[in-house]
Amino acid sequence: MHKTHWQKIRHRLHQHPELSGNELATARFVTSRLQQLKPDRLYTDIGGYGVAACFDSPHPGPVVLFRAELDALPINEINTFAHRSVTPGVSHKCGHDGHMTILLSLASYIADNQPERGTAIVLFQPAEETGEGARAIVGDPAFSELAPDYCFALHNLPGHPMGQVMIRSGSFNCASRGLTIELTGKTAHAAYPETGISPASAIAELIQTLPGLASNISQDERVMLTLIHCTLGEAAFGTSPGQAKLLATLRSESDSAMHRLIETVTDHCHAIAAQHSLSIGFQWDDVFAASRNDAECAEYVAQAARECGQPVKWLDEPFRWSEDFGAISAASRGAMFALGAGEKTPQIHNPDYDFPDQLITTGTDIFAAIYRQLLRET
């Protein structure tokens, strides 16, 4: 079909975004498009609203999975073009509308060029933005039926030349997680603060010391702790505070370094809380595992890019941003790559970002080339 067909689909998806865990209408739309292609197997409601279509060959061979994301972000779009989001406060500011369109286009290609061996799977995953979707997919009993041997994913990336493929073996995206630290003491009259237990000194000490802990975890990889938000007491001049809350993001290139960072940070927080006679609690959110690329799979990506005439850049270090595809690639051999979305394209998560339509063909062609390498060679 002419590429304007896929542009219309992408614009339709862009207009009707849904937040993580609420992708019901998006999943139904994707399912209806896949049903028209008559896959051999179609799974719905995997790990939430996940959808997977399988194209089976009668001959043995590898099971190859290609993945895209269903969810959008809680960002109000400021663009004024005709396909802007119709849902206030929600928009596709990460390009998942484009990723889904690429995968639907790939599914159409596979339907017209059936695998000569093995099985091809297109997977549309929910809740990537919260880090919950891929883990839920892998934990779903249906995933054991899919049982991929190889898995591939892409992410568009503004600030880089249009169509440039960025790849590396080993760590590709960092592990990350959000930490909320809650300190509880006892309120008091502001005129008699000594009769209470204020967390002010403890929270100040944590603000000063927590970021530096990360630098002692590993000399071989990037490990970071970024302070995000802090509250102390209430806006009441007559009250000495009894509670404080501090939010931080932990980040590392490997899961092992993340585990060491968690242990170091929580031990440090417990010690400071005890010194100030405070109780302490922790809450973890937006948990992303590190995404690691298999060396052979990374080379499949590079070979496919070269076949499609796209420039390849081998990265010296992983990207700092996180992506929950790591949960899927940890369950099979896989690779994620970044696809340049243009130096002047607004950054992802910006309110004026929009996925470049020209990447639909580029992404489809690269995925199709990987597909041919693994499932169409005889």
Rank of each mutant, 00 (worst) to 15 (best):
R222M: 08
R177I: 06
D149K: 04
Q303E: 15
A302V: 03
T361D: 15
P158G: 03
A295D: 10
H92G: 10
T345Q: 06
I78E: 15
R41G: 00
A338L: 12
S256W: 09
P351S: 15
R222A: 12
E221C: 09
T195W: 08
T231E: 13
T4H: 11
I181E: 00
E205H: 08
S291F: 03
I167M: 13
A248K: 03
V287N: 10
G131E: 01
H5W: 07
T130M: 00
E307I: 09
P211I: 15
G47N: 04
P141R: 10
P356M: 11
L246I: 06
P311F: 06
D365C: 11
A304N: 06
W321I: 09
M100T: 15
L106Y: 07
A188V: 06
T101G: 04
I102H: 05
P351L: 07
Y150E: 04
R320H: 13
L247N: 11
P241A: 06
I280N: 03
S144R: 12
I328G: 02
L206C: 08
P311E: 15
E23A: 03
L154E: 13
T266C: 12
G242E: 01
L154R: 01
M258H: 09
N216H: 07
A72T: 12
H92Y: 14
L24V: 09
G334T: 08
L19F: 04
T184L: 03
L247Q: 14
A147T: 07
F143K: 07
A52D: 08
C297N: 01
K313M: 14
L246C: 01
Q36W: 05
A331E: 02
N76L: 13
P241T: 02
S201Q: 13
L183K: 03
I110F: 05
Q35C: 14
Q347S: 09
T378P: 00
H16V: 00
I280T: 10
A369G: 11
L103S: 07
H59R: 11
G95P: 06
T87R: 13
E18I: 10
G133C: 02
A248P: 00
A330T: 10
H189P: 02
A341S: 11
H155E: 14
A274I: 10
T87Q: 12
V51F: 10
D40Q: 04
C94K: 02
S291H: 01
S218P: 03
D357E: 15
D354S: 10
D140L: 04
Q15I: 13
A191P: 00
S277C: 11
Y371E: 02
H270M: 10
I181D: 00
D286F: 08
I280E: 11
P39F: 11
W314C: 01
P158R: 03
C269M: 09
S198T: 14
P241R: 01
M336Q: 12
A127I: 00
Q347D: 13
E253L: 00
Y49A: 01
G163D: 05
A369P: 08
A302K: 09
L278W: 13
A190I: 02
G238V: 13
E23M: 03
W321K: 00
K344F: 05
P62A: 14
L154V: 06
R260F: 06
